[in-house]
Design a binder for these strands. Sequence first.
DNA 1: CTCTGTGAAGAATTTCACAGCG
DNA 2: CGCTGTGAAATTCTTCACAGAG
Lengths: 220, 220
Amino acid sequence: MISRPRIPRPTAKRLNLYLRECEELLAVGHSKASSQMLADALGLTAAQIRKDLTHLSVLGQPGVGYSLLELSQTLRETIGLTRSWRAVIVGVGNIGRAVLSYAPFRSENFAIVAAFDTNTEIVGKSWSGRVVHPMHELKSVVKQLRAELGIVAVPADAAQDVVDQLVAAGVRGILNFAPRRVIVPEGMQITSVDFQVELRRLVFEVVLAGEDKVEGVVRG
Amino acid sequence: MISRPRIPRPTAKRLNLYLRECEELLAVGHSKASSQMLADALGLTAAQIRKDLTHLSVLGQPGVGYSLLELSQTLRETIGLTRSWRAVIVGVGNIGRAVLSYAPFRSENFAIVAAFDTNTEIVGKSWSGRVVHPMHELKSVVKQLRAELGIVAVPADAAQDVVDQLVAAGVRGILNFAPRRVIVPEGMQITSVDFQVELRRLVFEVVLAGEDKVEGVVRG
DNA sequence: CTCTGTGAAGAATTTCACAGCG
DNA sequence: CGCTGTGAAATTCTTCACAGAG
């Protein structure tokens, strides 16, 4: 087995953006794209795109650019999207429902195979075709359906407890929507999407952009 | 007149995590925290925390640590959270509704002052206390309510058009939930939250972790 | 003691710039 | 030509390691 040279973290994060862009360009009928074209679309530099792509096994055609079909295919393989992934979701509140009915997931190799909640008014009902299980069934259902990913869409207070249960149930990665930092054991992957943090980041960007225009302002 | 030295981008992103952690620690009764304590909680190094905090005007107490009250206050000022921000949201579908009823926003200085949608079945009704306006009122309402932020929660196809309209209406920053790259003019701030990209990133992390059994810990 | 603040060192990442290919 | 692939340079970011404060 040939071990791929380590992909730098920043590159790994960008690969997904490249894939999204490739798929978009393919959808509108393009078949090739130069590094400059991708760079313009994504707000990066052409050199960076080329450097990033050297970590993959795609080669561009000098004078022409990259084959979008080949590039997107390689990206999907690299990222791990050529196999299917099963996820369970915990929390069927507002965010949980939005995720359950999120259209882009349906066309992917992602299947949300079960939903869980503590609310007895929700348990037993079905949302977007999935029956909501009570929490005590989490472990057995995860095992039985061989789910590998967990999606956490519960209030902040419950997040760590739910994460612990998912870890105990044997998932390999967690997508966390709860606005709280959670701790996972070594080897467990977690990606957090915190609306509040993102909104605050945006505000900070706006503030910083405002300072740049007004030179020499005192702060703090 | 002292101008604050530029805050490195990675530091700027982390400040929000520091703030979240400070508020959490305050909520559970702590009043001080050492850089090591924060580092452990956030999966970073103590040196990095201290270095980051030198960009602020807080001083830690040698032998003790940082005052959480002072630190959180300074962070809030730096980020721009000591003033209030008005936002409008476009798109009252699943994600839009989740955002409209997102509890953590309510306790903040964020006010979503108006909602917009193209769906005539939704327009005129109210969601979480906000009447849904038709799109053609966007500009006038943004102006009238002096909204500075726009939240985009529409399908991918409509994203760029909506962003253009928000820019034309005069917002200063945009939080984009649509799973598509959008282009904004120089000076306009945009932060994107793409569930699909995040899920794919998680999958990639799981795949990479499977290849080399090193990695993991805390994020988010 | 413990813990901060910080220059200096080290590592990682980005950009440059150009040879070489179609 | 136009565009890739890539060493080398430049830059940015992180970690080290230790003086100094309480």
